[in-house]
Structure formats: C-alpha cells, structure tokens
C-alpha cells in the first residue's frame, strides 16, 4: 500500500457526512471554508454528500443564517437550518430536510423541555426532519428527556466525543430514533466494539469539517472490523435512509 491509495477505497463507501459547517465564523475564521472550498475538501475524501449548517445561523442569528444557507444551492449540500421558536414560520416556508436545535446558553439559549420547544419539535417530528443536536448544546439528561417527549423525532447527536458510552449506549438501546456521529468517536476500537455489540444502524459518519480533517474518522471507519454492509451503512447509508424518510 502506498501513501495515497487508501483514499481509493473510500469511493466505494458512498460517504455522506453528518457534521459539516459552512461559511464565515468569528472564532474559527482561519479554518472556515466557503461552499466551493468545502466541496473541494469533501471531494478529496470522496465524500459525496453532507449535512451542512451555517456558522452564522449558530453564532449570530438563526433566521439570518438560514437565509444565507438557503441561497447555497449545491448538489452535495443538504442544508441544516437553525431551528428556534422564532424561526418556525421560516422553517415552514423552507421545508427543511434537516434542522439543528442549538439549545445552549451561548447559542440559541432555549430549553429542551416541552413547555419551551414543544411546538417547534412537534413540527420537526411531524415531518420527520433529521434533527441535529450537538453535545455542546445539550447534556445527556436533557437528551433523554427530549427523546422521551418526541419519540418520532429522528435525532442525530453530534460531537458526543469518545467518553460518553455509559450514557450513549443505554439511550441508543432505548430510542431507535437516536443516532450519533462518529467524528469524535475515536477511542481505541470503540467504533468496532459498538458495531459488534449494538449493530451499525445508529452510527453515522461525521467529520466536523472545517475544524477537523475527515481523515481521522475515515481511517477509524476503514480500519474497524465489520462487514462491508455495516461499513457502508455507517458511511452514508443510514443517513440517506433518514433523509429519504423526511415528509415533504
């Protein structure tokens, strides 16, 4: 094997990235990528599709970011629109296939409890919108409550890292509508052990571009012992299935 030919094996996986952000960012300015540069970066790893949120929608204003994101029309890009109680009307117009709930105090700063986000989550649930939530924005107890409250809401929990299995695995067993991204799932043989014991249905490949290189999560996926079907499911099959289930 040479230094470069491992990338050739990636194309067969039909990769779809669950964890990408596009546009300018205040704190991450040096690393951020516009849509065209992001497309090149994804293509260099044979990643053919991505859920992409816009930094402005997370850092500044949900409605503003959603407007900018809506104008980025790319075949590979599935927009992840920022969902807040105030953007519900905008979301109803945009008809998103994916949305992000950024409950955190330094993000959109609202509660994940039904009394606060109930109407918004009911809308997302009614259309089975793929709903991205970052570990940075919701603790495990809050996630557990949300999953109980909205049993039809497909949730992709991103940035969960590698230390959370004592929370993550019981929640995944309890909620078949919960998924997690693999961008930080980088403990020794962790993904391999997960698939052996829990199956491949609830893991989705994510890179955390543009901050992280996809190389680490991809190498982890490639080197894990699992069947080809399981590897393709994690690489993109699971996420594509979720997106296909969104109600128009």
């Amino acid at each position: 094997m040479s230094f470069t030919d491992w990338r050739a094996t990636l194309a067969a996986l039909e990769l779809f990235d669950a964890n990408v952000r596009v546009g300018a960012s205040g704190p991450h300015g040096a690393l951020t990528l516009g849509a065209d540069a992001l497309e090149q970066e994804l293509a260099s790893f044979a990643i053919t599709g991505a859920l992409a949120a816009h930094w402005a929608g997370l850092e500044y204003d949900a409605a503003h970011g959603n407007g900018v994101l809506a104008e980025l029309r790319r075949d590979w890009l599935t927009p992840v629109f920022a969902a807040t109680p105030e953007t519900l009307a905008q979301l109803e117009r945009l008809r998103p296939r994916a949305a992000q709930l950024a409950f955190g105090a330094l993000r959109h700063n609202f509660s994940s409890a039904r009394w606060c986000c109930g109407e918004l989550c009911e809308y997302l649930q009614s259309r089975r919108v793929v709903t991205v939530i970052s570990r940075d924005d919701l603790d495990w107890e809050g996630l557990a409550r949300l999953l109980d409250d909205f049993p039809g809401l497909p949730v992709v929990f991103v940035n969960a890292g590698y230390r959370g299995d004592r929370y993550l695995w019981p929640l995944l067993r309890r909620h078949s509508h919960l998924y997690f991204d693999t961008s930080g799932y980088l403990a020794h043989r962790q993904l391999e052990a997960f698939v052996e014991r829990m199956g491949a249905e609830q893991a989705v490949f994510g890179s955390r571009l543009p901050l992280f290189t996809p190389a680490a999560a991809l190498a982890t996926l490639l080197s894990a012992r699992m069947s080809d079907a399981q590897r393709r499911a994690v690489a993109g099959g699971n996420l594509r299935r979720l997106l296909a289930e969104v109600q128009a």
Binding site: F3, W6, H188, R189, L191, T213, A217, T220
Partner: peptide
C-alpha cells in the same frame, strides 16, 4: 497513537492524508 486509550488508525489517517 495513545493506544489503547485512543484509536491508532485516526492519527495514521491524518498522516497519510496530509
């Protein structure tokens, strides 16, 4: 690598892709 704390394939991927 930090094996067996962290996944050794991850830094290897970073080097190979650099």
């Amino acid at each position: 690598s930090d094996m067996p704390y962290l996944e050794a394939a991850a830094p290897l991927g970073r080097v190979l892709a650099a």
